[in-house]
Write a protein that binds this DNA or RNA. Structure first.
Lengths: 224, 224
DNA sequence: TTCGGTCTAGGGGAATTCCCTAGTCCGTTC
DNA sequence: GAACGGACTAGGGAATTCCCCTAGACCGAA
């Protein structure tokens, strides 16, 4: 079926050049009309309320008022507006946060142009849209836990105290034997904990654990 | 004077959507011709060597082979090519790193389209270009310290190109065997590089390397 | 040409990790 | 109060990686 109806879009991204690029891209899609561009959260909310777009294409990382925060407030100002989040991150914690904020679509910045078109059509028709790359991840989380995967901070809460303790020491650069001595444990026990916490976080390499620990603030990147 | 000469550009950015947007934007500038798009470091180097563009428009954050690393290698492959870095960050440490890597231009993603045009013209004419927003910052840094803001990035300069490449892959979570396959090397060679770069950095554990890599911006803590 | 630095890679032993199993303790539930 | 599940502990054995040393090829600089 041909899309006869025009999709009215507001574009919000704090990077002017990226925004201009996206606008140029959107304008090349025939049934899309760009109503406005916004560069910060508050401006976005004003425009949404005034113009009532069909879709708000929204970057998450914006200064002042976060993209997610914007998404949470949109329904009150313009109930018919569907929010399509544009994010750099495919991690389940980011996706989950966005979904909790009530967004109808989640598109990774590393997506094909065709995906953008499909997503816009879906949202305009009232259907949700998730980037294929991430929907698997999220779906796996749903199936396993029966609910949305939590964000990074919450992931940390899923670990036991012992596991957090060992994760931190690990991320600080202490080896298995070292940790075992500090905690008066067998090296084998420390291995068990590491293995178990890796399973819980679904991270199975040490660098990944270190990045996670930094992300959730368990350790800082600038230790000696 | 009218710009009669066409500026031949290669566009490198790992986010497909952003890339498409920029391409669309570039194509709307009349004296610019986009020769190719690249999504990773090695591909970029190949294309640069093969196509010898006037300007390489280069995003810094790319997986596998860092944008700065790409910039460092460009002159050997195509001496006439000017590198125009596209970065989210205006901080002096980022700018300084880029300048040390030999880039001719530094453009913040939050720039006006007109700036992109001006920057391309400048580089094509052999003149350097810095976003006005950052040149103040850098200048202030110079004035205050009397020298380039060295900081963490300087340590990174102590490593060879190969070592930086392997450090990045390591910090991204790739194992020794994995890295060896990607770079078409023996696992033993990768071990050698790791060992040598550890010596140079005086960091002798993987978590420490990961934190270092994050600190200097070689990798981000929030990879999926 | 010589020299130093880089990139490559192997040998061999030490150390660590991975996968599996399993006992103890403790709080919750039926 | 007995059963159950989760947390914490730990070992065996195989696989993998790490560590230290050596060394050839190559290249640019002195």
């Amino acid at each position: 079926m041909p899309e006869t109806k025009t999709i009215r879009v507001i574009l919000a991204d704090d990077h002017q050049l990226v925004r201009a690029g996206l606008r140029s891209l959107l304008q090349s899609i025939d049934n899309v009309q760009v109503l406005a561009e916004c560069s910060n959260g508050h401006e976005t909310l004003e425009r949404v309320e005034a113009l009532r777009p069909d879709v708000l294409l929204l970057d998450i990382t914006m200064p002042g008022l976060n993209g997610l925060e914007v998404a949470r407030r949109v329904p009150k100002l313009s109930p018919a507006t569907q929010v399509l989040v544009l994010s750099m991150h495919a991690g389940p914690e980011y996706v989950a946060q966005a979904l909790r904020a009530g967004v109808a679509g989640y598109l990774i910045k590393d997506s094909a142009v065709e995906e953008l078109r499909v997503a816009l059509d879906a949202l305009a028709a009232g259907r949700p849209y998730l980037s294929p790359a991430i929907s698997q991840t999220v779906l796996r989380g749903y199936l396993r836990t029966g609910k949305a995967p939590a964000d990074a901070g919450a992931e940390l809460g899923k670990l036991t105290a012992r596991q957090r303790e060992i994760l931190q020491l690990l991320a600080e650069g202490h080896g298995t034997r070292d940790i075992a001595e500090r905690l008066q444990l067998s090296a084998k026990t420390v291995e068990s904990h590491r293995s178990q916490l890796m399973d819980r976080l679904h991270i199975h390499d040490v660098p990944g654990l270190v990045r996670f620990a930094i992300r959730v603030g368990l350790v800082s990147a600038d230790l000696s």
